[in-house]
Nucleic acid binder design. Structure first.
Lengths: 204, 204
DNA sequence: ACCTGAACACCGTTCAAGT
DNA sequence: ACCTGAACACCGTTCAAGT
């Protein structure tokens, strides 16, 4: 007689996200997630093949709230910016997931839908073929790189302070820039870089 | 009577880089590096505080070969591109180090010197203050993001092939772009994105 | 059919003991 | 002063045993 399953993938994904949000990436272990579910570690293997699949589940769960529909108002640059900012805001709610992003984003349905919308806007803007592919990859590289940088090396964090303390004799520009950087807030930094990229993305 | 040390930090960094180059990131363990040196794991703690410091050592060792002097020929955009490409080429020789890069780059003397040169070029180009800081951060975000993307999700790798196999009904642009992307080589992709960014980086 | 407990082969790290 | 072996508290994962 088939015994009913006591869990489902959504419960596991939610529990895993709760664990990583609460205790950071190092808290994300099979045993830790199982405990959150009042189950044993081995029981999880009925639902995921291995730790890798658990991580992919967490990434998708963290990103699930992103509105992936293409904006219709504004010029194409604004519409790209809106999509990119939506992704950044949601990831900002789950900073511990950031290191998992580059590794697992390709398997996330949310990322796929979001990318499809991004490409729709780029296509309407007049891009196609190789140029559209390169533009997409540049936008992805900047988005993931900037989000990562923001959480692993924030402008206003210890890294920049350490930089500002560098010998001004050996690193004059670095010392000066660290001081300037301390006055830029994360939103302005992200949007500023995105603006540079979009300005360079010509369609003629 | 002081017993002479049997190792030094450079030997440890070299051994650790050899281990990671050979066996990938998962092979980088205290025991694994010790074995490469014919020593015990605990002995390493005489030279590094913990695993984190060992990782920082590996990153610096991998990057040590980067020529960090600012180029003098060409316009400022070309000079920035030369610096960025130098970093990418050296990292390309140690792909397993890529995941460690975002976490440890701030502690690398090579990265600091390289950044100082990058800032020197941006300053000569007429950038300063907040705009220079934002430009630097955008270049860093793109560089690290694109290198990471290249090694974790190469255009010509499995990810793109999987994307190309997506339902063309649900993901029409994604399917088309995946096909286009397969025809772009990694150098052209990286340089193409960098070119977009530099074009948008105006100095007026 | 699903869940469990014990076990295996690893980790990083501590600490008392050797030379 | 430096290195070592044993030990501790973890990992992910396998597998036979329970219900």
């Amino acid at each position: 007689m088939p015994r009913p399953r006591s869990l489902n993938p959504i419960q596991i994904a939610s529990a895993a996200l709760a664990v990583i949000d609460e205790g950071g990436l190092s808290a994300l272990t099979m045993r830790g997630v199982a405990k959150e579910l009042n189950a044993t570690a081995m029981c999880l293997y009925r639902y995921v093949a291995d730790r890798d699949e658990l991580e992919a589940l967490v990434v998708e769960q963290a990103l699930a709230g992103v509105d992936t529909t293409a904006p219709v108002e504004g010029d194409w640059r604004d519409r790209v910016a809106v999509l990119v900012r939506r992704m950044r805001v949601v990831i900002g709610c789950h900073p511990a997931v950031v290191p998992l992003l580059p590794v697992h984003r390709h398997r996330s349905p949310t990322v796929l839908r979001w990318t499809e919308s991004l490409l729709a806007v780029l296509t309407e803007a007049g891009l196609d073929g190789t140029r559209r592919a390169v533009a997409l990859r540049a936008l992805l590289a900047y988005t993931v790189g900037a989000i990562q940088q923001e959480h692993l090396a924030p402008l206003s964090g210890g890294g920049t302070t350490a930089m500002a303390a560098l010998s001004p004799a050996e690193f004059p520009h670095l010392a000066a820039t660290a001081a300037d950087a301390g006055r830029v807030d994360p939103d302005a930094e992200f949007d500023g870089g995105l603006e540079i990229l979009l300005r360079g993305l010509t369609t003629d």
